[in-house]
Simulated assay, not measured.
Amino acid sequence: MGVEEEYFLVDPLSREVVPRADEVVRGAAQDVGDLVSRELGRYQVETRTPPCGSFGELHAELRRLRGAVAAAARSAGARIAAVGTVPLGAPIPMPVSDGRRCAEQLRDYRRLVEEHVICAAHVHVSVPDQERAVLVSNHLRPWLPHLIALSANSPFFCGHDTGYASWRRMMWQRWPVSGPPPFFASLGAYESLLAVLTGSGTLPDRRTVFWDVRPSSRYPTIEVRAADVPVTAEESALLAVLVRALTVTALWAVERGDPGPEVCAELLRAACWRAARDGLRGAVMDPRTGLLAPAGDLVPSLLGHLGPALEETGDRATAVALLRRLAATGTGADRQRAVHARRGSLTDVVDALVALDPAVGLV
């Protein structure tokens, strides 16, 4: 498994984002090489871990990468913030990075690109082949609301409380191919749809498939893209072990000949919306039935589904402990709002985010 994380670059005085990605990437690359890169906007940088086999290994890599980027940002007169949207400022239109791909996206998607001021975490888990990756996607679809709720970390945007735990989610799903993926009966069905989407000009290439789950176009993995970037490296590593356990559970079902549940697309979209709005505070919607349950049931239901896989990967004790802590302390969105309630200013929220050590939570 591996994780890609995106971070904002923030001016420590104004607390607004600053377009210093080129400087930060050059500085961090001296320590971590090509594991750090630019993102679509000049306010952002991205890191990607090498493949890791355990929670501890992945957590250490995430801390190392965050530390390298944070040090490079300080040298460039900035700070990094692991948060899904920008709490302060009005950074639109976003200055777009140089390069052919960014220019093509700006040409095709226009204002969508200039308003793409969001940061996410993408989890990769290795799978044997593309056919099974597509079928695994079917099995992961019903669990996307759980992942969205657990990772919610973007309640504020440009000086306002959005009323959502994950406003990044609302901004993300405006793209033409985004949100929960369709159910696919086979790899052939997946390839046929992609051929139509690329042939019509809706997608310039396969890398612009922005579904929450997709077979990676670059690696032999299934890629899950539903989460806000978590506040801490520890929470990113937890997200990854949960996604790996979901993938292992799905692979077992695929080996039994189970292609996955054909969950209604509209119910799944509604469940993801509710998870983005409420996070772990409120009710969660089961996309298979449309029924509501207390958010407190989310962690037990997830652990019940993943228990055997977490035992198989050796992650059960760690996952149980961290999920219980998350349920008690709240998501990144809850903790940001708590800072705002105590101190009364979004500048304090930004200060709390940029002051974090990779090993310490926002409390």
Rank of each mutant, 00 (worst) to 15 (best):
H122L: 02
G201L: 04
R132Q: 15
S192Y: 07
T162V: 06
T208P: 00
A165I: 11
P181H: 11
W172P: 02
I222C: 08
Y164M: 15
Y190A: 01
S137E: 07
A185Q: 13
W167N: 13
M170W: 07
S186W: 07
F156I: 06
A121D: 02
S186N: 10
T208C: 12
A189M: 01
C119W: 00
R169D: 04
H124G: 00
V196L: 13
P145V: 03
H146T: 09
R207L: 08
N138L: 07
V136I: 12
A121H: 05
T202W: 05
R168G: 14
S178I: 08
R206S: 11
V117Y: 09
A152D: 09
F156M: 07
P176V: 03
L144K: 14
F184V: 09
P182T: 01
N153W: 04
S151L: 13
C119G: 03
H146S: 15
S137D: 02
G163S: 11
L197I: 09
A165W: 06
L144A: 10
S137W: 01
R141H: 01
P204K: 03
C158H: 11
Q173Y: 06
S217L: 00
E191T: 00
G201R: 12
L150Q: 10
S126C: 01
W175R: 10
P155H: 09
L203Q: 08
P176W: 07
P204T: 04
T221K: 14
W143D: 00
L150Y: 09
V125Y: 05
R218G: 00
S216I: 11
P180G: 01
D161E: 11
R207F: 00
V127E: 07
W175N: 04
G199Y: 04
S186L: 08
L194E: 14
L193P: 02
C119I: 06
H160K: 03
E131A: 15
F183S: 02
G163K: 11
S137C: 13
A149Y: 12
A120R: 03
G163F: 08
A149P: 08
P182Q: 04
R174Q: 13
Y190W: 11
H146A: 15
S151K: 08
G159V: 01
H116G: 02
L135S: 01
M171H: 09
I148Y: 13
W143L: 02
Y164P: 11
H124N: 14
V127S: 05
L147W: 13
H122F: 06
S200M: 06
L147F: 15
I118H: 09
A165F: 14
E191K: 04
W172H: 15
G201V: 10
A121N: 05
